[in-house]
């Protein structure tokens, strides 16, 4: 008997139609994301200045990059910023979520209040905090007018402290969002487990430390991944809040890349700094996405 598996026209059409529909998006991503990444990687090995040139000079750009004081400052700043930003946002977010989860009256009002900064542009956030922290018209002056003459808060003008003002503004913007993630995690915990723990005699503190917080592991992971990639991509906030200053005190790799590529005409070095940024994110994101996507049917 013939095993004729030739499908009819309708079936064959239905077979390739989905792929045809997906193809443009995928092609665009392949070209504009992965193609461009490849292009930038290639550029980072060339001596391009104002325009791309394909004179390969090996790892020279990378060597130069890591010899630059400017880049070192940016990397150190990023390390400080990312660590504090992620840690404080998570701590604040977790605390607010746990507190809000105690049958608080007015939760419906507080939640959107904590969250609304998420809806703002970093440029708006930066503008607001820039003036709020400006000693001449902002917080310091207000305190003086209210009679606290010795109040002193000039971090934004202080090269050693300015990076922390970026942390403050960034935490302000995203900690409410982290709170929402943790709150969703808390609400997803099966109450029977908590009842069982209470019957077992766990105190409130033990209940949270031993049962609830460990069960929030997925929320911690998601929050970390999102904050981490936001930290490395941070650009607008610095531009609006400090413009990278005072001096270069708040330069981050993102602002470094922009100024080297587009204002200093050191495209090769700019490209190599972008590659370093990508590799840093990929080191966290690739394993994360891999574990999220594998073994799903």
């Amino acid at each position: 008997m013939s095993t004729s598996t030739t499908a009819d026209f309708r079936t064959r059409l239905q077979d390739w139609l989905p792929k045809v529909v997906l193809a443009p998006s995928f092609a665009v991503i392949l070209l504009f994301v992965y193609g461009f990444i490849a292009f930038t990687v290639v550029l980072s090995f060339t001596g391009s200045k104002m325009l791309p040139k394909f004179d390969f000079i090996g790892f020279t750009n990378y060597a130069k990059l890591f010899a630059l004081q400017h880049w070192t400052t940016a990397v150190v700043n990023l390390a400080i910023f990312a660590t504090l930003y992620i840690a404080i946002s998570m701590a604040v977010g977790l605390m607010l979520a746990i507190f809000l989860d105690q049958k608080i009256r007015g939760e419906g009002l507080l939640r959107p209040l904590y969250l609304y900064p998420m809806a703002l542009s970093f440029i708006v956030t930066g503008t607001a905090w820039k003036w709020f922290l400006d000693p001449g018209i902002g917080l310091e002056k207000t305190m003086h007018l209210w009679g606290w003459e010795s109040f002193h808060f000039t971090w934004i003008k202080d090269s050693d402290m300015a990076i922390y003002t970026i942390v403050i503004a960034a935490v302000w913007q995203t900690s409410g969002f982290v709170m929402a993630m943790f709150l969703a995690g808390l609400r997803g915990i099966d109450n029977e487990i908590l009842k069982a723990a209470q019957i077992d005699g766990a105190s409130n503190w033990q209940l949270y430390r031993r049962i609830v917080i460990p069960m929030l592991r997925p929320a911690f992971l998601s929050a970390f991944v999102i904050l981490f990639h936001l930290a490395i991509k941070s650009y607008d906030l610095v531009v609006a809040l400090t413009g990278g200053g005072p001096g270069r005190a708040t330069e981050l790799p993102a602002t470094f890349m922009y100024s080297y590529t587009f204002t200093r005409n050191q495209m090769g070095i700019g490209a190599s700094s972008a590659v370093i940024m990508l590799m840093t994110i990929a080191a966290i994101m690739v394993p994360y996405l891999y574990s999220e996507l594998k073994e799903k049917p």
């Binding site: 008997m1 013939s2 095993t3 004729s4 598996t5 499908a7 309708r10 079936t11 239905q14």
Partner: peptide, 20 residues
């Protein structure tokens, strides 16, 4: 169908669209 045939009223329907 990986191999073999399915027929309804004597007509082999391998590869025929479900709605047909």
């Amino acid at each position: 169908i990986s191999s073999g045939d399915i027929a309804i009223k004597g007509r082999v329907i391998n590869g025929v669209h479900p709605s047909k």
